[in-house]
Design a protein around this nucleic acid. Structure first.
Length: 574
RNA sequence: CGAGGCGUAGCGCAGUCUGGCAGCGCAUCUGCUUUGGGAGCAGAGGGCCGCAGGUUCGAAUCCUGCCGCCUCGACCA
């Protein structure tokens, strides 16, 4: 490709809309263009990379028996009602429209429903199982707040794969194969990922893992053990809660704590540690019910764990909801709460297990200015649910090995789910087993955000001058240019370009008469793996100058000795 | 949806407080010179100053409403 013909324009300055490196560089290199927030056009250079990423994905999915298909972008709303997801997603991430016949249609945000419909129509027998289908397909998600360029967008291409099995055991072993295929894909694309335990969220199922690029601009919080292999999304991370010395139970005593509302204040005022206090936090469920959450003062509530314990979405209760429930902010506790709230509907009490193993805690007295000392579970209060609700943090202790956990940011580039029979049961996708008996198909689903992967590769592979593309997904392998005056220089470059094109090499040829500095800067910005320069100096030595994007040094090589085939040139990034 | 910030040429910005010819740099076009790290000179084109209404002799500037963009939060692959 001649750069004089290439569609796209590089920018010297960073567009004000871009905050993170990948967004800035993709914009500056003229690779992407925003139509509106969360919707991007891919220009020729970026789209070549995208196609290479897709090809890597195809190869790895095909290698484990995947068959590529293509399902519709627009679905009838009934399909989503049938799976039961309509209720929680319609009008949120799931956007739609009404057609001229007044039928309700939705834009697919994922394809579990569509593929389950396909499976129930095509799969009848255990003989057809297991199988795996995948597609590389547009999705639309009506995100509240798209951000960070290609990282979180509303319209995006996703590789989504679905596998079908006769048993959980068969799914389990295939899940491991998918896991390995994903590691291969990300490695080949040029990034190192960390696989973490994750929440199953709106997709559902029994287990899930996320593939994360650890990087500062990520929006997920990861908990990683420094000693062993424990890794988890902070949403689900478990940890060893600091233990406190068990003491003989003391009788409840009311103490005046005027103006002391926060855990910090109360602990300091009474001269106890934060882990000797009891924290009360209020949430409201999507059904409008207020929930009273109790956790030890040194710990924070993990909202995802709470949602999973309740089986309902929650948000922090508003001040109005707290007072309407006759809860005294700053002084609330579960002790005597029913008597205190006499006349109101009973409130659900959810207790973190830490509270049940700690003795003689300081708790609120349900009246302004007073706390209770020596609160003990279950002597003084009861719970509707006791479970792990605590949020793992930097420095928490690993449950597996006792090592120290650290908190890192990450970009989720892929995820894998064991769906089990969630969709097949809801949508009656069954097969006949060896005994002629109908059984629900056991399913798994697996996603990779293609555009997000491109952005992640750039995020992980760049320097202050620009992108450093791995060979595997570089738009072109060679950035050829001529610099300086002289017909012989231009002719030599033209000849090399013609020869290499004939050999089928991927060459981006800067045939413009710009200054050397301009061309070098632009080459660094675009970041192709190998730069080949023709100048007076090189021509007079029958040579070209080569420079690898990820090296500093340059090298003169005789043209006759130079094999530009990417497999022949030094291979650092794969 | 809550908080904060910002909308002026393709990109980056000044001008807004204190109303009075719409500017600068980069990019683009023409010509000449230049050619190893985003060249120089001369000239040219490009604007509904986010949109609508209001105040005023006069509005980019003041007032009202709306829209869009960015960041944080909420939420979420």
């Amino acid at each position: 490709m001649r750069m004089s013909q290439l569609f796209g324009r590089t920018l010297k300055e960073i567009p004000s809309e871009a905050e993170i490196s990948s967004h800035q560089l993709l914009l500056r290199a003229g690779m992407i263009h925003r139509l509106v927030v969360g919707m991007y056009s891919y220009l020729p250079l970026a789209y070549r990379s995208i196609r290479k990423i897709e090809q890597i994905i195809r190869e790895e999915m095909n290698a484990i028996g995947g068959q590529e298909i293509n399902m519709p972008l627009v679905h009838p709303a009934e399909l989503w009602q049938e799976s039961g997801r309509w209720q929680s997603l319609a009008g949120k991430e799931l956007a739609g429209f009404t057609d001229r016949f007044d039928r309700q249609l939705v834009l697919a945000m994922t394809h579990e429903e569509a593929v389950t419909d396909l499976a129930r129509n095509i799969i009848n027998s255990y003989r057809q199982l297991p199988c795996q289908l995948y597609q590389i397909k547009l999705k639309f998600r009506d995100e509240l707040r798209p951000r960070a360029g290609l990282i979180r967008v509303r319209e995006f291409v996703m590789k989504d794969a679905y596998s079908f099995h006769t048993s959980q055991a068969d799914l389990d072993q295939y899940y491991d194969q998918i896991h390995q295929a994903y590691l291969n894909i990300f490695h080949r694309a040029g990034i190192d990922v960390v696989v973490v335990d994750s929440d199953t969220g709106m997709i559902g199922g029994s287990a899930a893992h996320e593939f994360m690029l650890v990087c500062e601009s990520g929006e997920d919080n990861l908990i990683l053990c420094s000693e062993c292999n424990y890794t988890a999304n902070a949403e689900v991370a478990v940890f060893q809660k600091p233990e406190t010395e068990t003491q003989p139970l003391q009788p409840l005593v009311e103490v005046a704590t005027p103006g002391q509302q926060t855990i910090e204040e109360v602990a300091t005022f009474l001269g106890v540690k934060k882990n000797q206090t009891l924290k009360a936090v209020f949430y409201t469920t999507s059904e409008g019910e207020t929930v009273f959450v109790v956790i030890r003062g040194d710990l924070e509530v993990n909202q995802t764990k709470l949602v999973n314990a309740l089986g309902s979405e929650v948000r922090i209760a508003s001040a109005e909801e707290v007072s309407a429930n006759n809860l005294v902010a700053g002084y609330a506790s579960p002790i005597g709460i029913n008597a205190h709230r006499a006349g109101l509907a009973s409130i659900k009490i959810v207790v973190d297990e830490s509270v049940t193993t700690t003795t003689n805690l300081v708790a609120g007295a349900n009246k302004v200015g007073y706390h209770l000392k020596n609160a003990n579970y279950p002597r003084d209060f009861q719970a509707d649910i006791v479970t792990d609700l605590a949020l793992a943090e930097e420095g928490s202790t690993c449950v597996k090995c006792g090592g120290q956990l650290s908190l890192k940011k990450g970009i989720e580039v892929g995820n894998i789910f064991k769906l089990g029979t969630k969709y097949s049961e809801a949508m009656k996708a069954t097969y006949l087993d060896q005994n002629g008996k109908a059984q629900p198909i056991v399913m798994g689903c697996y996603g990779i955000g293609v555009g997000r992967l491109l952005a992640s590769v750039v995020e992980a592979n760049h320097d202050e001058h620009g992108i450093i593309f791995p060979k595997s997904i570089a738009p072109y392998q060679i950035h050829l240019m001529h610099i300086g005056k002289g017909q012989e220089v231009a002719d030599t470059a033209e000849k090399l370009y013609a020869d290499w094109m004939e050999q089928g090499l991927e060459v981006l040829y800067d045939d413009r008469s710009e200054s050397p500095g301009f061309k070098f800067k632009e080459a660094d910005l675009i970041g192709l793996p190998l730069r080949v320069t023709v100048s007076q100096k090189t021509v007079s030595a029958d040579s070209v100058e080569i420079k690898h994007r990820d090296h500093i040094d340059r090298e003169l090589v005789r043209i006759d000795d130079f094999d530009p085939n990417p497999n022949q040139v030094e291979d650092r990034l794969l």
